[in-house]
Design a binder for these strands. Structure first.
Lengths: 203, 203
DNA sequence: TTCGCACAGTGACAGATGTCACCCGCCCGG
DNA sequence: CCGGGCGGGTGACATCTGTCACTGTGCGAA
């Protein structure tokens, strides 16, 4: 029986190296490639055709979710697994939509990583029950594209006028979008709205 | 020659296990303890008296910087090293003040970790030059304690009135604090002020 | 074809926020 | 003992934000 061939993607080099060291201890795993950003990860997967791509979400350039989407579109033979710090419902939903086969949190017990990889390599799926439940409770993203755009800029402290000129809108329209977004999210103002949206992985 | 005795503290269990696996590969290192939060780390250091405490900053309960401060106050024999995601000048400044002997970023090359540990164990210090330079440029925290308090709550989207009642102040005073803070930080409003302060590690 | 909804805008109003001046008391360093 | 900084406060003012109502357009689904 041949080893499970794995490509790792993670922007924090120290963590990348450490996870590689951890997985290398398992006799049935072969770490065939490492990448520090999404574009490098995609390139590696395309040339190496591994069994598993184990990737972080938040990376410079292309995110792990972007990679999963791209590979799904190409009908690649590689199964994508996500390892992330964030238990955001929106991330999980996007991962599911992108055909991701495993979703793990970085504060999960270590043994669960190797176990999850074996499960996915055998054709299974790994999504923690608590996470799935939280995603269910949070529901789906209620925001429209323009509301998201406005909220992203508002988060950075821009005024309605500045946001309007960046988006090519009138300040009044921006005010309406942010007001709508806050209402949908049950927030009292743009700051709270931004925090809520981000916590849910909707930004 | 005996091994360098190390205690690791890191709240993301997966990363903790991975770093432990990585360091365990070095014959002159002995991982004598692991902790997933600051309080556990302190307790371990006090009983085990290791050569090195290698700790993250952002952890539940006590932060890595808090631990360093506590150990410095006790004149402990353990040297504290920080490994963190964030290159925030304020963090580095607080680390220096707490007698921290090494400060590494999680996106540093892997080999540098082992090298840094050996340097610190031999009585040296490890602070990356770029980080030190950035800290120099950013200058020191211009905020007063009350301004920081107000800014922290403002970040969460609370109104002046709510912040005032939480801090036991009048809303006008809160307004003044936030206005002062924004002026000191060169920000146009509370949101930008909060972002700037956080980016610098002043919150 | 009509309904709903995203997108875009205007106008009016209340309330929140930002700015400034100016007040007090306190403590600490020169 | 006097200045300066911090903590705390007031009042006035301008501007920004949040809320509502109401007007359109265009698209896609029933």
């Amino acid at each position: 029986m041949s080893a499970i061939r794995i490509v790792l993607a993670e922007d924090q080099t120290l963590v990348l190296g450490a996870i590689a060291a951890l997985l290398a201890l398992e006799p049935d795993f072969a770490i065939v490639g490492r990448a520090a950003d999404g574009d490098a990860a995609l390139a590696l997967v395309r040339t190496l055709q591994p069994d598993i791509l184990l990737t972080d979400i938040e990376m410079p350039g292309r995110t792990g979710l972007d990679c999963a989407q791209a590979l799904a579109a190409e009908r690649a033979r590689t199964s994508v697994m996500i390892v992330t710090t964030f238990a955001r419902p929106g991330y999980l939903a996007r991962a599911r939509a992108a055909g991701v086969r495993g979703y793990l949190l970085k504060d999960a017990p270590i043994e669960s990583l190797a176990a999850a990889i074996r499960t996915v390599a055998a054709g299974g799926r790994v999504i923690p029950a608590e996470l799935a439940a939280a995603a269910w409770e949070a529901g789906s993203d209620p925001l429209t594209d323009r509301e998201r755009d406005a909220l992203r800029l508002a988060e950075e402290g821009l005024s309605n006028k500045d946001i309007a000129s960046r988006l090519g809108l009138s300040p009044g329209t921006v005010r309406n979008y942010l007001s709508d977004a806050a209402a949908k999210l049950g927030a009292a103002n743009r700051i709270e709205a931004g925090r809520t949206a981000r916590a849910n992985g909707w930004l």
